[in-house]
Design a protein around this nucleic acid. Structure first.
Lengths: 133, 133
DNA sequence: GACGGATTACGAAGTTTGTCGTTGACAATC
DNA sequence: GATTGTCAACGACAAACTTCGTAATCCGTC
């Protein structure tokens, strides 16, 4: 028995995959050419196409014919992908502590007073939700 | 010219690598056997060893002799790895909005009042820091 | 000193990612 | 209708990840 690691759990997106998903989430959809342009044309056309085909195999996107080209749509919602990625980070890096994650998040960034206020509101909502539930 | 993708940017840890780094961060250090036990012995001894050797090649861990075995230490700090992973997620998934990340984070989780309070304190500190700096 | 257990070293192999060239299809244009 | 341009399909291929077998080494014990 050599070297087969069997079917792996569906994983998060790799860097390049995430580049492409990011475009589709932001724009809502995209043809190969559109996605490629959004990436600054730093990768070849066939590379983008291939990645989209791989993502389609994995069930992350689908496509429709549009004229002669395909238009690709994200099937996985960004929020769900984000939630999974965050879970992974909380568990593996911050030992399950969302507080520590938040501390690291705000450490590296500057926020306006308004942003901080909105983030407080998010915590307020979470608190009320906890009271009721 | 076929198929060379050149040197890629140093990336975050893959899943299995992260499993192993997670153990080292939590425990502070570990021998191959210790890491393997911490992972529930679901992977072979030589697999864990190999991953540690790869991580050492990448500069993520180092080792010291301890009796007949090697003891591995993390060189990359968890907070720094976490910061990089969070940046990636904020930019690629939440379109640069830390607020949306926070919203998703608290959406999926239950928090005690104390946890929420401590998270507010983290925001307070960030706010004061912004006032001064 | 031979044996057994633990450990590292070496390297093979399967899979996925990421890169792209080439080909073939098809449409618009000349 | 030949040329040109756009596009998907196919396949090649290097690099990385992940798995682990096997060999070599070392240390204690009998």
């Amino acid at each position: 028995m050599t070297g087969q690691r069997g079917k792996r759990e569906p994983r998060g997106f790799t860097d390049r995959e995430l580049d492409i998903m990011s475009v589709l989430w932001r724009e809502g959809s995209g043809t190969v050419t559109e996605v490629r342009e959004a990436l600054g044309e730093e990768v070849g056309y066939t590379t983008v196409l291939k990645m989209l085909q791989i993502l389609e195999e994995k069930g992350a996107v689908s496509h429709e014919q549009e004229g002669r080209a395909y238009r690709y749509f994200p099937l996985v919602e960004s929020v769900r992908a984000g939630g999974r990625a965050l879970s992974r980070i909380v568990n593996k890096i911050f030992h399950g502590s969302a507080e520590r994650l938040l501390a690291t998040l705000v450490e590296d960034r500057e926020f306006t007073a308004e942003e901080i206020e909105r983030m407080r509101s998010i915590l307020d909502r979470a608190e009320r939700r906890g009271d009721e539930g």
